[in-house]
Design a protein around this nucleic acid. Sequence first.
DNA 1: TATTGTATGATGGTATACAATCTAAAAATA
DNA 2: TATTTTTAGATTGTATACCATCATACAATA
Lengths: 218, 218
Amino acid sequence: MLSNLKRPITLKESALNELKEAITLGYFAPGERLVERVLCEQLGVSRTVIRECIRHLESDQLVIAKANVGPTVATLNPEEVSEIYEIRSMLEVSAVRSCALVADETVITDLENYCDLISRSLTSGNIKEALSDTRLFYQSIFIAGGKTVAWDLVERLNSRIGQLRAVTLSSQGRSVAGPKNLLAIVAAIKAHDADTAAQACAEHLAQAKEIALNELDS
Amino acid sequence: MLSNLKRPITLKESALNELKEAITLGYFAPGERLVERVLCEQLGVSRTVIRECIRHLESDQLVIAKANVGPTVATLNPEEVSEIYEIRSMLEVSAVRSCALVADETVITDLENYCDLISRSLTSGNIKEALSDTRLFYQSIFIAGGKTVAWDLVERLNSRIGQLRAVTLSSQGRSVAGPKNLLAIVAAIKAHDADTAAQACAEHLAQAKEIALNELDS
DNA sequence: TATTGTATGATGGTATACAATCTAAAAATA
DNA sequence: TATTTTTAGATTGTATACCATCATACAATA
């Protein structure tokens, strides 16, 4: 009953997921041109499907399409990255606040479990898993806080900085501070202390932003 | 030089614009099904083009596509609308703050001109023109404040509440308060008074939110 | 009445064709 | 040689035809 609106996974969807992952994981270099025919062969689907995927990627701003030339993988400049982290901070802080006010026991145990999973994945070096669990962690916060639109925006913003996120996460994870920050957020939520939770969240994001910006000009 | 990246307007682009306008202006009822073949005839283009348009609208969340059934015009519930206005408020307040800190004479005269245009359009009952000028007003603020990513998000959010915006704008315009609020923002920006500008902006948005929510359950 | 077929229409997907346009190499020119 | 022009190839934009699958409404049956 979770998502009974589009149960059947279409070819276009799975192709889109593959392309998204390929872009965010850096299999395509930023600025690289994406040629329809080549993608058709690589993914084993027709041009129709590829074109629909490209339109989707275009409106997600993962690629930039020029008429009669085709799409290229979007590049990130420091200003954009900086702004993306600032917006994320606003949205996440707001969600954390709302969550702290209404969170019940179920939500809190969920969050604690995710923290645990994230720590474990990070210590074992499984970045991909850590990213996925971090996503679930924040998703729980946003949903609990009733911020579904904001969550959607955050996901879009995150997909645009996908490459950087892997770096920031592993960097934050290597230090002790990263998971500690998340635990601080959960503790404050548990205590229904919105201000403290908001501040912990803001600090975590500011830290991530610094790491991302450093990574970007390297 | 504004958008020299995609000068050639393709069929798909113009069809997409027509569809967007048709949806945001309410020519299609919320929840109504969009049938490919019908759209092909109405717009005089092939299914290929229509399908790409639908994918684009889908990822803009103006339509909701169900696999094997097709797209329907998205409906708005009060929670979504409320959240959209809250997010807009966060983003716009932030942009107004930045703008107030850096705005030069050029920006300010632009803003004053737009205010004038908006007032005139509203008194003459030209809502469409007023919407367009309001867009330019805020765009100037965001660009001046260096918030290009945020501006993009605001435009997406606005397109989702397109029907409501026409109502709120004309409602705010009928009262004297609406244009007065905008003038207050400009005055504060002119004085480089970020706090006052931010507050005026927040009030304006809160007002718009109320009107929109009232309209929604009528 | 409730269930099961069945017909119809829409979508998801493929393949193909062709014109317009871009790109890059080849050729011509200075 | 350096620069411009031409030209051929590659790629996109769009149209069309076709098939399989799914959804829905309706008819037939028990």
